[in-house]
């Protein structure tokens, strides 16, 4: 028996919004420590890794490890049937071929349940090596989303160059070029608005705009985003899922031919 409950469905809605552009289907691996999802996008350029810890749920029970293959568009349809403040309970029997989403209104005057067929997905699991990153940048997630959106107008790629002084995002194309420099903030009173840079060595890498913009669909989850970079390895873009865990996106860099 698997059962996981969240007091408000809005968190699950936001998590789905954050992954549905990149993935059509995904396997949710459930164990007593929580729910894990790891999947590449169709083009194998990026990888999504989602961790939702069992102790972050309002109720969590997982008697046996189960993997639930779900179509994310179908899951979105079902979650649309829930009000943001409805309690959501995800339930599945061991060896079940369906998963049930139960929504309960706060006043307990409306209870609905939706069963969704599970899929057998043959997904590859990749081993992600531990990396000591040369640069780790923390900045407001809204600012990062704004920069990715703005620079996408200029070209298909965004250069991210990090030094002690700050981070420079740049793009160029037919209409011209764009540069946005973000400096480390000295005001630490408002942590959510701060920009911090931990740098061992300067790094400059180039990434596809399209993927960065897909990652920013996670912005509503967290006021801050963390970007981790080293030469010639994938960029890691991490958002916290409050009280539950995190979502990490790995993006392969563009490299010299």
């Amino acid at each position: 028996m698997f059962e996981a409950r969240l007091d408000s469905s809005v968190t699950l809605k936001k998590v789905l919004e954050a992954i549905k552009d990149l993935l059509n289907d995904a396997s949710f691996d459930c164990s007593d420590t929580g729910i894990q999802l790891q999947a590449m996008d169709n083009s194998h350029v990026s990888l999504v890794s989602l961790t939702l810890k069992s102790d972050g749920f309002d109720k969590y029970r997982c008697d046996r490890n189960i993997t639930m293959g779900m179509n994310l568009a179908s899951m979105v349809k079902i979650l649309k049937c829930a009000n943001n403040d409805d309690t959501v309970t995800i339930k599945a029997q061991d060896d079940a071929d369906t998963v049930t989403f139960m929504f309960e209104s706060k006043k307990q005057d409306k209870i609905s349940d939706y069963a969704m067929k599970l899929m057998n997905l043959d997904q590859e699991h990749l081993g992600i090596p531990d990396t000591d990153f040369s640069c780790v940048i923390r900045m407001p997630s809204i600012e990062f989303a704004r920069i990715c959106r703005d620079l996408a107008q200029f070209g298909e790629s965004i250069g991210i160059a990090c030094t002690k002084e700050g981070v420079k995002f740049s793009a160029s194309g037919d209409i011209g070029s764009a540069n946005v420099k973000i400096a480390q903030t000295s005001n630490f009173e408002k942590e959510e608005e701060s920009v911090t840079i931990e740098m061992q060595e300067p790094v400059a890498l180039t990434f596809a705009c399209q993927y960065l913009n897909s990652f920013t669909k996670a912005t509503p989850l967290s006021p801050q985003v963390q970007l981790s970079m080293s030469d010639n390895v994938p960029l890691v873009v991490e958002y916290t899922v409050p009280e539950l865990g995190h979502i990490r996106y790995y993006l392969a860099p563009k490299i010299e031919e």
Binding site: L47, E124, A208, A252, E257
Partner: peptide
């Protein structure tokens, strides 16, 4: 000119 690499160039199948 830069070309897009694949995530599988960096992370290997378990």
């Amino acid at each position: 000119n830069k070309s897009q690499s694949s995530i599988k160039d960096f992370f290997h199948t378990k």
